[in-house]
Design a protein around this nucleic acid. Sequence first.
DNA 1: ATGGCTGCAAATAGTTTGCAGATCA
DNA 2: TGATCTGCAAACTATTTGCAGCCAT
Lengths: 146, 146
Amino acid sequence: MQNKLNSYCKKLQANAYKITPQRQLILKALLDHADEHLCAEELHLIVKKEDPEIGLATVYRTLELLAGLGILNKLDFGNGCARYELAEQQSHNHHHLICVNCGRVIEFNDDLLESLETWIEKKTEFRIVDHQLIFYGYCKECRHNQ
Amino acid sequence: MQNKLNSYCKKLQANAYKITPQRQLILKALLDHADEHLCAEELHLIVKKEDPEIGLATVYRTLELLAGLGILNKLDFGNGCARYELAEQQSHNHHHLICVNCGRVIEFNDDLLESLETWIEKKTEFRIVDHQLIFYGYCKECRHNQ
DNA sequence: ATGGCTGCAAATAGTTTGCAGATCA
DNA sequence: TGATCTGCAAACTATTTGCAGCCAT
């Protein structure tokens, strides 16, 4: 927890960014909700509890900064807003199951895609640097409630 | 071409929707650019050449309607706008390679995902109804030009 | 003729930006 | 001290909606 926060701060300093209380609050909130895929507004609500003065624009700027440094992954689940997750916590091959009924996001890991990637790189001469795989469907709970 | 346009119109009528000149223009434009993944504004520019009076809101409403009928797939490549493709033209398992340099979108087909889907459905009791797989990277041309 | 459809303009939602002042290094 | 960072408000972009009139059926 604390050591992760520390390593993120080190990364900021290493890139000549300053460690401000706002940035620390945002990083702490991300660690506290590491399993949640928060969006900017949700994160803003959380950090405002600690510092009501903090502005939404600062949250947006910080998220963009952290994503640029590779600390965060920026995700798009098609709800019309960007969502974020801590990059280090995740393996490269983790994907998302999104319930189209309740919006719940379930994660799973898999390696099948790796062989698919090498096959594509050979076949199309396209150099893959990242991928996003999303499954839409109905989660266990929603299936039972219907 | 003409027969496809016709079958789309049939589908509209079958669902008690009216066949208006605007809707026909939009469908024709989609057929003319079947390989392009147009967004609403690009489509608007195209149809305005035929009918300068046509409004952007009509384009949005028609795209939503056609996607609802299953005539179009609504895609999200993370450029901040929704893109569309004719659904019938595509196999279920077709995916997109997006060049992060030039933005080019390349399509490819594959069936590996099917076995992945059945595995996930067993493992998580999540009922999958759709999926989206996107690879980000550098296309052949951009690799050569750099 | 009538209910759906259209164009327009205004509203909305998420995000970005300009700027004056505050603050970290 | 000085550049970076912040909060606020305004700007922006993609999309949606309300409404008065139009037009397929």
